[in-house]
Design a protein around this nucleic acid. Structure first.
Lengths: 345, 345
DNA sequence: CTGAAAGCGCTTACAG
DNA sequence: CTGAAAGCGCTTACAG
């Protein structure tokens, strides 16, 4: 086995008490500078590390944050939504920067996740990411709140939803991308993506979409909103169904890039040219979108900032501070899939 | 604050001693079935969870694995190599399945990572992923081994490298993809990617490439191996340089999909058609590759299996068992970027 | 500025 | 099958 040094070993060598070692290592101003330096030198030499379990047990905290990733249950086993992956990267970095360890876990809907982490003192707080159907999870969220678990979640703010949420301004994003296409002369729009309480992010994007059409005096017929979940396949199915009906459209606003990828496939199958005959836009700016043909115009969420805000907010919550709901601005990423203005063609 | 139940609370309610509670909760066969059930019922009712810090401290283990991700220092801050992201997903799932928590950390080259985790009892063992330049890290790996830290790493097996490595059979992959292109009638090959001790994965792919050419009696000139690291941009630069020299080629084997994406951009800029004039292949089968135009023929590494083997091997190591080096088979993913046989054109 | 001592909440050898 | 007790390695109030 490994022969780990303890604070007693250091105390012995330094000729001081174990309490002094502990203080010196935590940089307590109480301890004499000379003593402190001697202790730290010996600790470094022995490759000593404070035992986290003992320290955490005594201090009744863990210095650890838990990231709970809820996968889209519909997605295939090995494929994780690239957007969440990008969030994961930024959250990992942000917690490291804040001096916290990060426990990562993929969750099923049935897991008893809402108590596990904080109750067992494994983590001081929870970050919830992509947890699927909002309606299903309301109860679990309430339970978290009841138990006074510290948590933040990524997603749309919802008045009757417990807890702090950090999310993008999806209404704005939906509006901007639609307005962009209107500016390019498009008139016959459809929206591909679910738009109800079950997925408020998509709903918000749809609301932005409707606002833009209304603003410009364009008709918006609810029959042109086609249900789809965030997969390539679902986007393909929804768009195929739309086209099969023979509806005439010249612009497709998709609730996510994955949906847009599928929609592009359906358009191609129907021999419709992009962007000449049908302009198309996505949402998320996942890596794939810049390599699509034509490259996909989309909306970029700031995942780097999002990760930082999520982590900072959670730490504030843990420290008993007040934290606001946050709605982050989004950026339009203009590529080729919406073409250029009709007038200049 | 939160009012957490302890084993003493349960003992009190159940009318037994705290030791019995502890035993009952760990399903010790020593304790009477009736008592065990009563204790467990009360624990469930109180939403009791064993305090991990206390438990770990006492048992001198953590039930946690640490995943150390070393980013390519050249890559942009927010972009993580999609291949590693996919590995991360499978490792996360595999450790959950094995009953271990997973601590995830992104590391810099200068971090004192080689001691931190296991010495502080935060993790029982380490999984090292994508840790950059092999030559630079040899020393750190040796130090890990010296300290008897338990670790496994993803990558090429290297005789003078300490520790257990799990990796794909890259020689095989390089051979298969090259052979595929030879079968389709290609004759003038180039390999884009670094091929030296600093990146043994790429070197192995290059060795497979050379073997295939030799087997078929095709010339292989080392001037047709162009250095590139695994980024789109580097692939673009390397291919542009190759084309600028005016070399005549009809097949490009790239050491990674990211490199291939850049190479395709360079080919397009030089008005070379893919696959008619130049066939191209990548390695990794990252999500982007199926959406490239034309869709990229590539080599698929089994990340799901890799994650499981990595986790299982590490756990065996922790339990003092012997673990073999593992070389996993790879699969050819044939799409459009290598075209079809010349004879049938 | 320093030391002796209590205690965080468990697990497990020891005794019955 | 059960209980009393020791101890994992720290941190920190208390006393000096």
């Amino acid at each position: 086995m490994r022969d780990k040094a303890t604070s007693f070993d250091i105390a012995h060598r330094a000729g001081v008490s174990q309490s002094t070692v502990s203080r010196a290592l935590r940089n307590s101003p109480l301890v004499n500078l000379e003593t402190r330096e001697k202790v730290q030198a010996i600790a470094a030499e022995l490759n000593y590390k404070v035992d986290k379990n003992a320290s955490n047990l005594r201090r009744q905290q863990s210095g650890t944050l838990a990231l709970l990733l809820f996968e889209d249950p519909t997605s295939d086993d090995s494929l994780i939504n690239p957007f969440f992956l990008s969030m994961l990267g930024s959250i990992t970095k942000a917690s490291a920067k804040a001096g916290y360890d990060l426990l990562v876990s993929f969750q099923n809907l049935n897991d008893d996740w809402h108590a596990e982490y904080e109750d067992s003192n494994k983590a001081d707080g929870l970050i919830l990411l992509g947890y699927g159907d909002y309606v299903d999870y309301r109860n679990k969220l309430s339970k978290l709140e009841e138990q006074k678990t510290h948590f933040v979640r990524w997603g749309a703010h919802d008045v009757d939803h417990p807890g702090i949420s950090i999310g993008s301004n999806n209404v704005q994003g939906g509006f901007d991308i639609t307005q962009h296409m209107i500016n390019l002369g498009r008139k016959k729009f459809a929206f591909i993506g679910g738009a109800d309480k079950h997925c408020p992010e998509f709903l918000d994007r749809y609301i932005g979409f409707c606002n833009a059409l209304k603003n410009s005096g364009l008709p918006h017929d609810s029959s042109l909103q086609i249900e789809a979940i965030s997969t390539e396949d679902s986007g393909y199915q929804a768009t195929s169904a739309l086209l099969a009906e023979g509806k005439s459209i010249d612009a497709l606003v998709c609730a996510s890039d994955l949906i847009a990828m599928g929609a592009m496939r359906a358009l191609r199958e129907h021999k419709l040219t992009i962007p000449e005959q049908v302009a198309i836009a996505g949402y998320d700016n996942i890596p794939i979108s810049s390599f699509a043909n034509p490259a996909l115009t989309t909306v970029q969420q700031n995942t780097k900032l999002a990760g930082e805000i999520l982590v900072d907010s959670l730490i504030k919550l843990i420290n008993g501070q007040e934290v606001p709901q946050t709605l982050m601005p989004v950026d339009l990423v203009v590529r080729q899939s919406c073409g250029i203005a009709f007038s200049s063609l």
